[in-house]
Amino acid sequence: MLPEYIVFGLTGIGLFVIGLRAALVQAAALARILAINVAGTGIFLVFVTLAYRGHDAAPDPVPHALVLTGIVVAVSATALALALVRRLPATPGEDGDD
């Protein structure tokens, strides 16, 4: 018998797939960065669901720490990606919209 909070794990997978699909479909770089962030949140949600052990038990702190690290790394990567996007139109030999 699976615990009912598994719904969050399945939601996490749903978020990952929604984000991944949008990252492939969208053309605008900014929209793709946003989509990757949604996909990343889905992965975090799977981790935190695995850490959860019911209302009465203390959750597993190890996945929590990994996800906390992940949140900070994700925002750093987002910042770098946005800086790259900003430089894109200035790059010679590119017309900027591909």
């Binding site: 996800v67 906390l68 900070v72």
Partner: peptide
């Protein structure tokens, strides 16, 4: 899911700083 450390970080970083970064980038 009993992860208050993550709730604080998500509200401040995931929603807050990431949102601010994306909005600022919109001007580019």
């Amino acid at each position: 899911l009993r992860a208050p450390d993550l709730a604080l970080a998500e509200a401040a970083i995931g929603a807050g700083v990431s949102g601010a970064l994306l909005l600022a980038a919109l001007r580019d």
